[in-house]
Amino acid sequence: MNLEGVLVPVVTPFDTEGKVDYSALGKLLDHLIEAGVRGIVACGTTGEYYTFVGEERRTVMAYIADRVGDKALLIAGVNDTYTAGSVAKAEEAKALGYQALMLAPPIYCLPQETEIIQHYKTVSAEAEMPIIMYNFPARSGVEISVEAVIELSADKNIVGIKESSGDFSRALSLINAGMKDFEVICGSDDQAADYLFWGVRSWIGGAANYLPAEHVQLIECAKDGDFNRVREIMQRILPVIKNQESADYNQKAKLGCAHTGFPVGAVRAPLLPISSEDEAGFIAALKLAIG
């Protein structure tokens, strides 16, 4: 599967009553596609999927699939606390027309390496869909070892890994492992230029919700071999990306959308709005990024 380009883990807009704001979601999706993103990731962490209740998840996923159609690659986040839960979510995504899955190890239970490997192999066998592994030990509590990634890359359905560990030495080990028909995807936004320099051409980043054109430009400049331009763009947007990654990631993703013309409401509890001081710092960095 070709995963080249910017894949956006889209935020979920909420209205003043805390309900999903589908009108705002539609406008944001249209904007992202017009900016040239390659794909949309539904129900990623940036989309606050963990707050969905009842039929919200299915309704949000169905809306995204219908709105996006064949204009971008449709990827469904299918994280759960247990393997059968991820399988069920994968089957739902497949029925709704999604083309790929993004999957982290089960959270909280801290599976061992053999259990992580079996988790992915089971979802692969049951869902029969392309899977992007998601390595973010700060959230899941465990790391998918380099050795496990190499083993799993031999599975015909496991097509890549979003690498969000922040350890670029580890990323280099993956990039240079020579895995066939398998893509290492930038998942550490502040290291995007480093990934691009080493040949990576796929990026899943939450800041693309409010800086989609800049993300696309970075990929295109790297494809053209214009690394002077890559450096120029990255220098401009790096302060706001680092600010977002320092704390309150989801809150700032939504602030970024609002301040670039796409209001998407607040986050849901347990997350809370950030302080006026932190908001001012983020917006100042954002203004430098967008000129």
Results as ranks from 00 to 15, higher is better:
residue 158 I to Y: 10
residue 191 Q to T: 01
residue 21 D to W: 06
residue 6 V to P: 11
residue 63 Y to F: 12
residue 84 A to L: 09
residue 253 A to C: 15
residue 6 V to G: 01
residue 36 G to C: 02
residue 231 R to Y: 12
residue 119 H to Q: 12
residue 117 I to K: 13
residue 288 L to R: 09
residue 196 L to N: 01
residue 235 Q to D: 15
residue 94 K to Y: 08
residue 84 A to P: 00
residue 189 D to W: 08
residue 228 N to C: 03
residue 169 S to F: 11
residue 44 G to L: 09
residue 184 V to S: 03
residue 84 A to Y: 08
residue 133 M to H: 09
residue 123 V to A: 06
residue 142 V to T: 14
residue 90 A to C: 04
residue 13 P to K: 07
residue 89 K to C: 03
residue 178 G to A: 05
residue 33 I to G: 05
residue 136 F to C: 05
residue 111 P to F: 04
residue 48 E to W: 04
residue 259 H to M: 00
residue 239 P to E: 10
residue 280 A to G: 06
residue 208 A to P: 05
residue 227 F to E: 05
residue 192 A to E: 03
residue 261 G to P: 00
residue 172 L to R: 14
residue 44 G to R: 04
residue 169 S to N: 15
residue 34 E to V: 02
residue 119 H to W: 03
residue 128 E to M: 10
residue 121 K to T: 08
residue 93 A to W: 11
residue 95 A to T: 02
residue 202 S to L: 09
residue 51 T to A: 06
residue 76 A to R: 07
residue 68 V to Q: 09
residue 192 A to N: 08
residue 47 G to L: 03
residue 249 Y to P: 03
residue 219 I to R: 05
residue 67 R to E: 14
residue 187 G to K: 13
residue 35 A to Y: 06
residue 3 L to D: 02
residue 110 L to V: 00
residue 209 N to H: 10
residue 98 Y to Q: 13
residue 58 R to K: 14
residue 210 Y to S: 05
residue 143 E to N: 15
residue 109 C to W: 14
residue 215 H to M: 03
residue 70 D to P: 12
residue 92 E to N: 02
residue 21 D to C: 01
residue 84 A to R: 15
residue 24 A to N: 02
residue 167 D to K: 04
residue 213 A to H: 13
residue 26 G to M: 01
residue 64 I to N: 01
residue 217 Q to R: 14
residue 43 C to I: 03
residue 112 Q to A: 15
residue 194 D to W: 07
residue 99 Q to R: 07
residue 21 D to A: 04
residue 160 G to E: 04
residue 250 N to G: 04
residue 30 D to A: 02
residue 290 I to E: 11
residue 72 A to R: 01
residue 182 F to G: 03
residue 265 G to Q: 13
residue 176 N to A: 05
residue 111 P to H: 06
residue 5 G to I: 05
residue 3 L to S: 07
residue 48 E to N: 12
residue 32 L to G: 10
residue 95 A to D: 13
residue 33 I to N: 11
residue 41 V to L: 12
residue 283 I to Y: 05
residue 49 Y to S: 14
residue 178 G to E: 07
residue 106 P to K: 07
residue 214 E to H: 09
residue 173 S to R: 15
residue 110 L to W: 07
residue 1 M to G: 10
residue 169 S to K: 15
residue 221 C to A: 15
residue 44 G to F: 03
residue 193 A to R: 13
